[in-house]
């Protein structure tokens, strides 16, 4: 009964030095339009700041975007820090320019899903809604 009332809360973050935030901002709005509460950190965030924000905000999901090629390093650091802060239950997903060979490595490191360029935001929202059911 109460489960129905739970809102999905998502933190969208841009780790690293990359300033290309078009995709991140579009996803923020798309998730809002899918009924979620979305917190956006802005660009140029350290993995530490992202993990702290995720914990303070009590989110269910963290969505990471990186187009600079630094994703392997940055995404895995965010996952590791979340676990260290006792927030390993927060589900991490990601997007950006991620070469195909990197995807299995990132998934193994704890990134639940990777959305490559050209993914429809509806698919992302649908995935979040679906995945939220297991929470």
């Amino acid at each position: 009964m109460n489960e129905k009332k739970r809102k999905i809360r998502v933190l969208i973050a841009k780790p690293g030095l990359d300033g290309h935030d078009r995709g991140a901002k579009v996803v923020v709005r798309a998730l809002r339009d899918a009924g979620m509460e979305v917190i956006y950190t802005g660009i140029r965030q350290t993995p530490e700041a992202i993990a702290s924000a995720a914990v303070q905000e009590g989110v269910d999901f963290v969505g990471l975007s990186c187009l600079s090629g630094a994703h392997n390093n940055l995404f895995t650091r965010v996952v590791r820090l979340l676990r260290k802060k006792g927030a390993g239950d927060i589900i991490v997903f990601a997007g950006g320019i991620i070469p195909a060979p990197d995807i299995p490595k990132l998934k193994k490191a704890g990134v639940r899903e990777i959305f490559p360029p050209g993914t429809s935001t509806r698919d992302i929202a649908q995935w979040v809604l679906q995945t939220a059911k297991e929470l």
Partner: peptide
């Protein structure tokens, strides 16, 4: 839904 955007300006205190 909602976009909670105020944090952007305060995010430097996150850590």
């Amino acid at each position: 839904g909602a976009v909670l955007g105020d944090r952007i300006r305060m995010q430097r205190h996150a850590a």
